[in-house]
Amino acid sequence: MQKIHLLLKITLIGWLLGPAINAQAEDASSADPAAQKYVKPQPQVSRINALKASLEGVQLEHQIQVLDAEGGPFLSLYKKSQTRSTQGCAILLHSDNEHPDWPEAIAPLRDKLTEYSWCTLSIEVPDVTKRGQAIKTPSTAPASESTEEKTVSLANQAIVFARIEAAIELAKADGVNEFALIGYRTGASYALAFSAQNKLAVQALALIDIQTPADTSSYQIAQLIRETPQPILDYYLSQPSRNQQFAQWRQQAGRQREKPQGQYIQKDAIPDRVTGQDSQALLVQRVRGFLKQNTKQISQRRPLPQVNKGLF
């Protein structure tokens, strides 16, 4: 019986003090801003930090260059030529929601071109499509419309252009004066737009599987080729799910250039893929051959190793 009375007293005390305790807890949480602060996800920051950690883990932190453009820092990966002399520098632009060492195309080009007298500078491109959002299909316009007279402005265009210019200045400070611009997917759209507006900045342009960012007209992007005099390699995947009209518009625009300083070459990557060979090695071979034929590079032959006969 005493235990029952004791249990009843404890229950009664808890019932009486409960509201006061809850009120104190609410006051404490409202007084602590950290308890109510919502941490907004930053996928690009996390992606770049993971890339830096990965490079540092394999002792490649010397390739990391943090540059500044449009009032903010950005990551670039600078790899110098592995030959005796540097004949030029390739500026690489990755696709949306990727990073400057993305394995599909950027990483093999960034790594292998340095074996052929090129330095490489791969720069961080701001995300356009936020993770968790639906990916919008780029708008198209028939050739009969007057959209070809409009100026194309891509999302984050000013930032990306400023970063390209900062990368070029870094390479120039290292004694490089010949430049090629290589873009992958949406990065290729930025590369094309930059080349169209800055005709003397780069000597060659390579578009790898070009795609248009969300809310951008594929037709308008294709028309930029008409304004780009540099030699252009358009290496793309002609998959049935892709917009074949976009490829046709680009090819047509390539024929309409008024004062070209080099060829417009459109190459379908699908035949390369079905040979059973390494598609990345073929990509490097295509880009390297294009650059060798369309820039002012001297001999690309690798020097034979010197042998000390006294050791034999």
Rank of each mutant, 00 (worst) to 15 (best):
Q157F: 03
L154K: 10
A180M: 04
D127N: 14
P142Y: 09
K130I: 06
V128E: 05
E165Y: 09
L154F: 01
T151V: 09
V160Y: 02
A155P: 15
A158D: 15
E178Q: 14
L181S: 04
A171I: 08
K150H: 14
I164Q: 11
A158G: 06
A162V: 08
T129K: 06
S153F: 12
S146P: 09
K150T: 14
D174A: 15
E145C: 02
A143E: 14
R131Q: 14
E145S: 13
S144I: 10
Q157K: 11
V160C: 04
A167W: 06
V176W: 03
T140Y: 02
S146Q: 12
E145T: 14
T147S: 06
R163I: 07
V176Q: 13
Q157V: 01
S144Y: 11
T147I: 13
S146T: 12
E178G: 01
A134T: 15
Q157W: 07
V152N: 02
I182D: 01
T137D: 03
T151K: 09
I182R: 00
R131A: 00
D127P: 01
A162M: 07
I168F: 00
L181Q: 04
K130M: 08
T129Q: 07
A143P: 00
K172T: 12
A141L: 03
T140L: 00
V125I: 03
K150I: 07
G175D: 12
D127R: 06
F179E: 08
R131V: 14
A143D: 11
Q133Y: 12
E148T: 12
Q157P: 12
K130H: 13
N177K: 10
N156K: 13
A166K: 10
A162D: 11
G183K: 10
E148H: 14
V125E: 03
V176K: 10
E178Y: 06
L154V: 11
K172N: 06
V125Y: 01
R131H: 13
A141V: 01
A155K: 15
Q133C: 04
A134L: 09
A173L: 11
P142G: 02
T140A: 00
A167N: 12
A173Q: 15
V176H: 04
A162G: 15
A167S: 15
